[in-house]
Design a protein around this nucleic acid. Structure first.
Lengths: 212, 212
DNA sequence: TAAAAATACTCCATAGGTATTTTAT
DNA sequence: ATAAAATACCTATGGAGTATTTTTA
């Protein structure tokens, strides 16, 4: 039996607010119930619960008609954006990180790598994911390692003669390209990395030449 | 039996998101469970349900450790403000329209009204609602009307010889005091205004003399 | 092996339904 | 008289619990 956190229950605020918003918008509890695919008593009770918990009158009940009170008006202004936000969250989320995502990709590489190797692939990548901003960091191999450890870079590309043991690398092809990630990267602990595995991580960089 | 609205159930998104946010912030499902006064399996299941519904992986499960995926990061940014908004809604609401409310009350009145009539009532009012800031606007009757229309004033007090028809006024007593509100004010469309009706609107101003 | 997460299962609180009554136009 | 909200009551879903197993660092 847990402490039970006396009065810490936020209950189903969301349902209550949704019921309230629909009732406010339609001006009728019954119509709200229809739109929400609920029964009229259900919506009525939700609103009553909300009024009880907020200790106020949200609607003026004038017989069969209801009307927002000033308090109700105030709540509506607060609650409507939240309810809409919650109900559209699935789409918002899909839009945000679904197929075309936003965000940043930090790449650490040496100057010559940036100049001669990356452009071709970056072009290809940014065509495919126009939402992703790419930041190139012109650093030497050692500094690139530092950025990886500081989580300032997502990938480092370049020649690596000495491979520190807190960074994993995985040969991907039979000729030398190497995938370098921070140790805590999802792919870091997998022994077999397939192209499909990498593909989901926004960037596939198959550098053909390891040495600049 | 109602239509049942195939797949229209938004379920308890809120609980799921709250569980997720706490887990993300603490970096641990168990700690999140503690803070939420829930059991560890409960939080775990909430998050799994969320992942199923959003069709994604929010956390990297690496044995006993969890870590936000990029998707999880994105969701956190979307969901955190919502969860916080919902959980602080009670306070937000109380602050906005509770017993001692905050906010401003704009009163348009002529100079002599301000000097000789209002002070007594304003004193009374500000004693009762210390949270409400009062702004007095020293304007003539016509300008007061303009402020009402521009929603820059909540009430206008003063003599009104010509009453424009886009502003309603309601005689309250048998001698001449008049209540003037913008047309879209809650009381504007009611034929019968009682003292109780007015009392809930932060301010009761029974000016004894209409003419300055 | 010790931690934290995932599973398995059980139960009861409550959201939701149907039926009915109340109320104001 | 009608239409809508409130009330009464009941049922069943699913959220939350305890106990246990799995996993990896």
């Amino acid at each position: 039996m847990k402490p039970k956190a006396a009065s810490y229950y936020k209950q189903n605020r969301l349902k209550q607010l949704r019921a309230f918003c629909y009732a406010a918008k339609t001006g009728s509890i019954s119509r709200a119930a229809d739109q929400l695919y609920l029964s009229q008593p259900s919506v009525s009770l939700q609103i009553q619960a909300l009024e009880r918990e907020l200790n106020t009158m949200l609607f003026e009940r004038r017989g069969p008609k209801i009307r927002l009170t000033p308090d109700g008006q105030a709540l509506l202004e607060i609650a409507l954006p939240m309810v809409e936000g919650m109900d559209s969250l699935r789409d918002t989320f899909a839009e945000r990180c679904g197929d075309l995502n936003s965000g940043f990709l930090n790449i650490a590489a040496g100057e010559s790598t940036i100049l001669y190797i990356l452009p071709k692939y970056l072009k290809q990548f940014s065509d495919q994911y126009p939402g992703v901003r790419i930041r190139l960091h012109n650093v030497t191999g050692a500094d690139g390692m530092a950025m990886l450890r500081a989580d300032e870079a997502d990938f480092a590309v370049g020649s690596m003669l000495d491979m520190p043991d807190d960074v994993s690398y995985h040969p991907v092809f039979h000729f030398n390209p190497t995938l370098i990630t921070p140790l805590d990267h999802p792919l870091a602990n997998r022994d077999h990395v397939t192209l499909e595995d990498i593909a989901q991580y926004d960037l596939v960089l198959p550098p053909r030449y390891l040495s600049t």
